[in-house]
């Protein structure tokens, strides 16, 4: 039991580390990309928007396969020696979460009344000022985008299994541990891990929701 407890806490820590890092990177890339596409006009914009929308539903195993091929020793990025490390998992999860956050950000910003943007511009808001104004106006939806991105990666198993290898203490996270324990027939341990995963997901979302609702009041 003592051992199980140690193992679970190790797995939870690693899950938070991997998905947390991936979420941070995705938030930066996703929100920037969403803003850029929403506010600028450029040739091929419709194609890019379509690509982002497609990316929101990327099959995780395909992402896992591609990341694996790239990171393999014989692959183009093999010299980094990232395959079967948490870095590989962060990369895969970032690729999965960025389009989700970008797509929802894009939709959010595009649904801001155009009149408001004109007005802000007329009053002299430029560049970062305008972005900052829009962030403040759309905080609620942007946080929802972050939550959706988090939900997409914390629950993902196929890609992290492929690029991480499910190595005990190294790349074994909640989802891959559940798959392994269920395969080993340790259903009880798998269920315990499942409960912990749900609790983890709930508490992270609770945190984000509290921020969101606090924002709403102020």
């Amino acid at each position: 039991m003592q051992n199980n407890f140690l193992e679970i806490s190790e797995i939870i820590f690693l899950t938070l580390k991997v998905s947390g890092t991936a979420l941070l990177i995705s938030v930066v890339f996703g929100i920037s990309l969403g803003f850029f596409v929403a506010l600028r006009t450029f040739p091929g914009k419709k194609i890019l928007v379509t690509a982002i929308n497609t990316g929101m539903g990327l099959p995780p195993v395909v992402v896992g396969l591609l990341v694996m091929i790239f990171l393999w020793r014989s692959g183009p990025l093999g010299f980094f020696e990232w395959i079967y490390t948490p870095i590989a998992m962060v990369i895969a999860q970032t690729i999965l979460a960025t389009p989700i956050i970008a797509g929802l950000t894009l939709a959010t910003i595009q649904s801001v009344p155009q009149k408001m943007i004109w007005q802000a511009r007329a009053l002299g808001a430029r560049g970062w000022d305008l972005v900052w104004l829009l962030v403040r106006e759309t905080k609620l939806s942007l946080l929802a985008a972050v939550m959706a991105g988090f939900g997409g990666i914390i629950s993902e198993v196929g890609a992290v299994m492929m690029v991480g290898g499910n190595i005990k203490g190294e790349t074994r996270v909640m989802t891959t541990a559940i798959v392994l324990e269920a395969q080993k027939g340790n259903i009880n341990f798998a269920i315990i891990l499942g409960v912990f995963l749900l609790a983890l997901s709930f508490s992270v979302n609770l945190g984000l929701t509290l921020i969101q609702q606090k924002v709403r009041k102020s």
Binding site: K17, T21, T85, P86
Partner: peptide, 11 residues
């Protein structure tokens, strides 16, 4: 800072 802290032990 956070990214650095997370990635340092990995490398």
């Amino acid at each position: 800072l956070v990214l650095f802290l997370f990635s340092a032990p990995l490398l």
